[in-house]
Design a protein around this nucleic acid. Structure first.
Lengths: 323, 323
DNA sequence: TTGTAGGCGTTATCAT
DNA sequence: ATGATAACGCCTACAA
């Protein structure tokens, strides 16, 4: 029996006589043969693989997304390779290169703000790809996500409707991150629209610790704000903890909000008022859209998914001004 | 100029004349050339890549580990490909196959309990690999982690020293998971040693929701336990939340414990008594050991890392028996 | 249905 | 220091 027949027996068992198929299967088992993906990819020009490049794997909101995405992709026989660049735009570009060089059939990127080189690489290689998460500053095609701007406006509207007139914010670094930018902008716009004021905007790491440090710094400024808006639930969790340590009562002395509605948001004390990211739906839709693209579908018009305001106990009307 | 020279200019810039190097660099930039990893892997027999296969990406304790591991591997120029099998042993084996087929230079697996096929694959391909997390039921070589058994004994000793005589446990599925097994066994052994008793052991998913359901079921049994030991912080978080809903006061009516000491453990209410996993150290050590292996080092004797008991407010002596 | 042969993009060997 | 050439393992025509 020839090499070619063996190849066929493995990849198209139907196009081969039962006898040779069985023979090949036996040999495979006996020899512990594992097809070499490199040879296969080289010859067939495809890898049956999709990659996703995350800002970080340490924020559960991203790992929850990977989880949801994984489910639909695995159903189509695509293993999902995960890479994290830790908010380093150059590293992200390097990873895009790496993955394209590896011949991934599809690629998922988070957000819409990437190095120009990333777009060049994607275009030159014609790799099917999706920009997931955000439609702020989105290209006309292949972006699937929420409007961070609108979501934050809705949150601000709510706080202002409670009677807050002076707000402050802890955000993440805005360069290279349109989500952070749009959240700040949404808050600014809502505040301006209502004639309220934005006292302080602090840039901190998008982590629990970042929220802790941000809260401490905000407190030291005594800026008179009665509500503290955080760019993520992680930061809000840190801020809440630091508030407790500092003796600032939430929500009596200060309202605190997050963004994402991670599972832990409801378990904090007090439970966190936040914006719900439709993570499962996003994972599902991105997976489906990517599969369509990989099967030769045309680029799709950028599509918006909707968020919701989740009111819990970390917000209330202002009564006394905080320390 | 020949193809061979171009290859050298890219991979060993020092072994080539400055002039040709510059020429190649210019051409690379001009053409937007990306080396094809398949061809490269095929010819060189190595991929400069390492893979890690996780039980799940949804438990922060694993993503924190990936984060730590990533840091040391990236420093050596190895991108880390992450796969998650969601506690499906067959899928894990398939992924091992997949990664070996892809020619990863190194592989990290979680825990020591894997399909026999996994060990065969690893041996046949001579892929450098490490079993991270646990030394329970560990092979003599290449395992690096904690003793779940001893850690749980220490926790149980502590609870019993508080005066608890009747304990119950929520664990994860124990088949295919030596960590869950060792944690149950550690509790059983400590209880037996002190002449205390283990009222109920419930197998639940290793998630927040699993903890919620487990708590509800435990409560319905009215088994008289005064302390509820959970196999992970995630389960404990769910149990705590469900206790609050059910009006069971922690720690007055019931002590609750976790395992892992994830960042959120300190932010729950009440803050969780738990076992600290030395995640950063584990990530660092596993990374260093794997690099050594990939550079041709000999297999290393399995090594134990140490855990610590973290006492917070979710535990206290038994006063009244719970509802 | 099966065998044969060429080539995928890269590196490695060996002369030059 | 460079150029030619033979692999690497697999797939895919195409011929038998």
């Amino acid at each position: 029996m020839s090499l070619g027949s063996a190849s066929k027996a493995i990849n198209a068992p139907a196009a081969v006589r039962e006898k040779t198929r069985v023979a090949v299967e036996a040999a495979v088992r006996k020899l512990g043969y594992i097809p070499d993906a490199s040879g296969r990819a080289l010859a067939s020009r495809q890898s049956r693989t999709v990659g996703i490049i995350l800002p970080t794997i340490s924020n559960v909101v991203y790992s929850a997304f990977v989880h949801a995405l994984h489910k639909v992709l695995a159903g189509h026989g695509y293993p999902l390779f995960v890479l994290a660049h830790e908010y380093d735009a150059d590293l992200e570009a390097a990873y895009v290169r790496e993955l394209i060089g590896r011949g991934v059939d599809g690629l998922v990127l988070i957000g819409t703000d990437h190095r120009a080189q990333v777009h060049d690489l994607l275009a030159a290689s014609a790799t099917p790809h999706i920009f997931a998460w955000s439609i702020d500053e989105a290209p006309a095609f292949n972006a699937l996500g929420i409007s961070n701007h609108r979501a934050m406006e809705a949150l601000a509207d709510y706080l202002i409707s409670l009677g807050h007139r002076r707000l402050s914010m802890i955000t993440g670094a805005v360069i290279g991150n349109e989500r952070a930018r749009a959240r700040v902008k949404g808050l600014e716009d809502a505040v301006a629209r209502h004639g309220a004021s934005l006292a302080t905007v602090l840039e901190m790491p998008l982590t629990i610790e970042g929220g802790r440090v941000g809260f401490a710094e905000w407190l030291a400024r005594k800026d008179g704000a009665t509500a503290l808006v955080c760019a993520t639930d992680l930061q809000a969790a840190g801020a809440l903890d630091q508030a407790r340590l500092a003796g600032v009562r939430v929500p009596q002395d200060l309202s605190v909000t997050g963004f994402d509605d991670i599972e832990f948001a409801a378990l904090l004390s007090p439970p966190l008022t936040t914006i719900r990211m439709p993570i499962d739906q996003l994972g599902h839709d991105v997976g489906a859209a990517l599969v369509a693209l990989m099967q030769g579908g045309a680029p799709f018009a950028s599509r918006e998914l909707h968020t919701g305001l989740v009111v819990r106990a970390s917000t209330a009307g202002p009564v006394s001004s905080p320390k």
